[in-house]
Design a protein around this nucleic acid. Structure first.
Length: 328
DNA sequence: GTTTAATGGGTAT
DNA sequence: TACCCCTTAAACT
């Protein structure tokens, strides 16, 4: 599940759920027992994301560093009502649970407070680090489209790297030290959207073309955060933007800036009969999974009809249209 | 029942 | 380029 949008959304969710509280911590699976013991009952200051790296800062400079890798999942959900008002009528409502349900599967780390439980499984990195180590990790990353607007976080840095490499654009887009947060799916789809030949050397990509790709990624990843889903086909993007547009000028502004207030929009939806506001993605439901090229090998391109192709590039299955993305 | 693939990435060869 | 790690679910036999 994890490309940059997943991690940024996760950081926002964890921040909302745990910042300012002292969650319990445990390692039901037993592979993070010592770390969980150090975190147990410790005050959470904030959670944030850089590229695909997640950092949860606890008091006294203890930072939980998580990288989900290919198959990791950090599942966060509320198991108890947030406020007494959510339970009605008061006299007949059963008392809410005070402990989360038992963990299922290989849960390496569980964090929970009175309302929310978060289960981490399958991650490649689960570590306690210092703020200095966080800085060192972040320093190794290229610009992150989800941090567009942060000083120094712009496509020119990526272009400078691209100018002195012999690698193809498809390889470079997977290199987190060139551009952070893009994974295989966004790579395939964004190259198709810009009709770029994946095998073209990165140094031959025109700067204007790459800047357009960057701007597109700022938009696509932000939409990915807002909806918790990768959306790359124009029809669905138009609907997604319409939903976000409905949420008002302030939300739109935050969205265009690529800033990390996106999940706040979930609270900005229409008030329903019960008075509870529902997230935009709940109002319309998640989008159907649909891509232009990703995992469509052998099928016809929606644009030109020629067969979508696939080949392993940078260790992952690249998908592209040999006609639409022919070198020009 | 067993194998494979999955939106990653590090290390060895 | 190969192989390793993490976990789960769908696709095989």
């Amino acid at each position: 599940m994890p490309e940059g949008h997943t991690i940024h959304r996760l950081a926002l969710t964890l921040d909302r759920a745990f910042a300012g509280s002292r969650p319990r911590a445990a390692s039901p699976q037993g592979r993070f027992t010592d770390g969980a013991r150090r975190l147990d009952g410790r005050l959470v200051e904030r959670a944030e994301a850089w590229g695909k790296h997640l950092f949860v800062t606890f008091e006294e400079d203890v930072v939980l560093n998580v990288h989900l890798g290919l198959i990791g999942v950090f599942d966060v959900h509320r198991y108890a009502p947030r406020t007494a008002a959510d339970v009605a009528p008061p006299l007949t409502a059963p008392p809410g649970p005070t402990t989360p349900p038992p963990p299922v599967g290989a849960v390496r780390l569980r964090l929970w407070n009175d309302e929310t439980v978060a289960d981490l499984r399958g991650a490649t990195v689960v570590d306690l680090v210092t703020p200095e180590q966080v800085d060192a990790t972040v320093a190794r990353l290229g610009p992150d489209p989800l941090r567009a607007g942060t000083p120094g976080n712009d496509p020119e840095r990526a272009l400078a790297r691209m100018a002195r490499t012999g690698r193809t654009i498809a390889e470079v887009l997977m290199d987190q030290s060139v551009i952070a947060g893009v994974g295989n799916l966004y790579r395939c789809e964004v190259l198709f959207r810009h009709r770029v030949d994946p095998f073209r050397p990165a140094r031959e990509i025109r700067p204007a073309t790459f800047r357009a790709i960057w701007d597109d990624l700022v938009d696509l990843l932000a939409i990915g955060v807002a909806f918790g889903q990768i959306i790359t086909v124009e029809e669905q993007l138009a609907e997604a933007r319409a939903i976000l547009g409905d949420l008002g000028e302030e939300a739109s502004e935050a969205y265009r800036g690529g800033r990390l207030t996106l999940v706040d929009w979930q609270g900005g939806g229409e008030a329903e009969a019960g008075g509870r506001r529902r997230p935009a993605y709940e109002r319309r439901g998640p989008f159907e999974r649909e891509f232009a090229v990703y995992q469509r090998d052998g099928q016809g391109c929606y644009t030109c009809g020629s067969r979508i192709r696939t080949r392993v590039v940078a260790g992952r299955n690249l998908f592209w249209c040999g006609r639409c993305q022919r070198r020009r």
